[in-house]
Design a binder for these strands. Sequence first.
DNA 1: GAAGTCAGTGAACGCGTGTGCACTCAAATA
DNA 2: TATTTGAGTGCACACGCGTTCACTGACTTC
Lengths: 204, 204
Amino acid sequence: MPLRQAQKERTREAILAAALQLSHDAGLSQLSLRQVTRAAGVVPTAFYRHFDSMEEVGLALVEQSFMTLRRMIRDAQRDPEVVDNLIDASADVLVAAVKQNREHFAFVARERLGGPAPVRDAIQHELELFISELAVFLARVPELQSWSSDDVTMVAGLFVRNMVYRAEQVVATPDGRPDLEEEIKRKARREMRMIVLGFEKWRS
Amino acid sequence: MPLRQAQKERTREAILAAALQLSHDAGLSQLSLRQVTRAAGVVPTAFYRHFDSMEEVGLALVEQSFMTLRRMIRDAQRDPEVVDNLIDASADVLVAAVKQNREHFAFVARERLGGPAPVRDAIQHELELFISELAVFLARVPELQSWSSDDVTMVAGLFVRNMVYRAEQVVATPDGRPDLEEEIKRKARREMRMIVLGFEKWRS
DNA sequence: GAAGTCAGTGAACGCGTGTGCACTCAAATA
DNA sequence: TATTTGAGTGCACACGCGTTCACTGACTTC
């Protein structure tokens, strides 16, 4: 990559990182351009070389956040342990992923309903995409082979909703408390099992 | 009530109503004092006769919102139809309540994660209170008599989470679409049934 | 090595903001 | 009826904001 372009990329990342961090206190929408550029170590007008508005920054952050999530599920599909023991393993994967990308998950949780309309819509859209992807994955799990594709999609939806809720909890959990994290995992697992059990009973 | 005090109350209501309405577009936290007082038909400095900050307005709105909710569940407990046919009836009650208090529910959904910390905490607290109240109600339902109080509380938690999620959906639904509302009710009912089924299977 | 490109600069602007303060004048009190 | 109270007023101020524009100077291209 040409040096010029690389430096531009670095500044862009700095702006995104600053916005992500600052939005944690007050939400994306009441973030000021000057505040963000100050934190990014750049002059206010430089912002316009990268984004037209703060909203665009928000969309870029949504993109970043879900890239992480997509990578997570792609890796999980290759891991035989996850396929064998879906529920236990996916609770571990979820908590680990949220811990490693705490700020991104907090951003998504906060802006999913609290953000500007275009950001809200983008998050909603990404979540629906994620549900579809998860459904494709679940359809390959032996126990669910006999299920209709509608039912699998509905289970995927419930799992993702559970995931969003647990992510909210992990984000709200202080950093050095593995006991609380275990509790959240335990509840997440129990709930996923109940979803499957309830579904089986419902179908019968 | 003395005339003076009555007039003060009216202005206070006007400020709250203006804040509720305006926050729908952009969120409570990026609402300006002047904007709100302008919409309330009062001069900016008059604001301070009623509130110290916008945050305090937010807390008052949380209070208002949950008063509605509490009245709703209290009425429902007296209605024999609800007790007999808990799941179907409560889905109806929920959708009706959200429709009648759309702005308050939207406010709670939005500010639950997107609002200022004190408002978020207040909403969280009210939701936990509501779960307890619902658990007391559920404990009196015949089918659940044999359940442990922990299990009943957990079901109440799942019901409330379902409720919050459905409220988000109803709020996002345009007004004149009874078909979409029916769809949401249908899903809410199905999910509550699955929760109970999954729980029964889990306990066995 | 000269010419061109373009990420980042810095001064300037008009605007809406929160808040302080002295005020009015109807309602409440005595 | 005379006095006090206090909800709402109107002006002023300092401040941070988004955006404009002409600029610089290192990197890229030729």
